[in-house]
Structures are given as C-alpha cells and as structure tokens.
C-alpha cells in the first residue's frame, strides 16, 4: 500500500469513527426534548453493549476444535480474579494479556 492509500484509509477510519459518535447529536439536536424511549435506551444499552463487546472480541475463537477456547477462558478467568482481588484494572489487563500471549505462542501452538 502506498503512503497516499494508507492516508486515505486512516482518514476514512477517523471519519467513520467520528460519525458513530456524532450521529445521536445530529438526530436529536439540542433544544428539542429527546424522546423518552431514546432516553431509556441511553440508560440501559451501555451495559448490554459491554457484554456484546466481550463476545465481539471472542468472535473468531475456535470453540469446536482444539484448544476449544481454553487460552481465552483461562486468560479471562485470570483477568477477573486479579481485578476482583486487587481492584486494579491495569494489573488485571496487563497480566491477562501477557498470560494469553504466552499461552498462544508457547503452550497451545
């Protein structure tokens, strides 16, 4: 890919990302009351979306064939245990990621 092509790709990533963030403000402009149903969705959806993003991250994991998602499962359990024990998100994220990298590079290859 040439530099120009890469720059076009980056500009499109930036534009698409901004569009998703600004869309709600364009559809429901300031000054007009936001419909109640939309307000309700704004309260409940963020929590449902967090769950969806976990599944999104795991969408290409191999469950039916070896190693049956074992590295993902073990690393997630490690992240959860560390976060609940130390209430420190960095420790949990860093240790989980490094453990996962070790597992897929050295153990489950």
């Amino acid at each position: 890919m040439t530099t120009t092509e890469a720059a076009i790709m980056v500009a499109l990533f930036a534009l698409a990302t901004f569009l998703t963030r600004v869309l709600a403000f364009l559809i429901f402009p300031a000054g007009k009351p936001t419909p109640k149903f939309i307000g309700y969705l704004g309260r409940v959806l963020p929590f449902a979306i967090t769950s969806m993003l976990i599944v999104y991250c795991l969408k290409n994991s191999e469950i039916l064939a070896a190693p049956h998602g074992a590295p993902e499962l073990l690393a997630i359990l490690l992240v959860a245990a560390l976060f609940l024990a130390f209430k420190n998100s960095l420790v949990a994220i860093a240790a989980g990621t490094i453990a996962y990298m070790v597992m897929v590079q050295l153990i489950f290859v």
Partner: peptide, 19 residues
Amino acid sequence: NTAGIDFVMTALFVVIFLD
C-alpha cells in the same frame, strides 16, 4: 512476537463488565 496481543481489548472489556 505480537500473536495474542489483541487480547488486551478482551481484558479491558472484561474489567469494564465486572466494574
């Protein structure tokens, strides 16, 4: 060797979920 480095995203969302 970056294999598996994108697990950082999974870990992040698991932490947000638990929080």
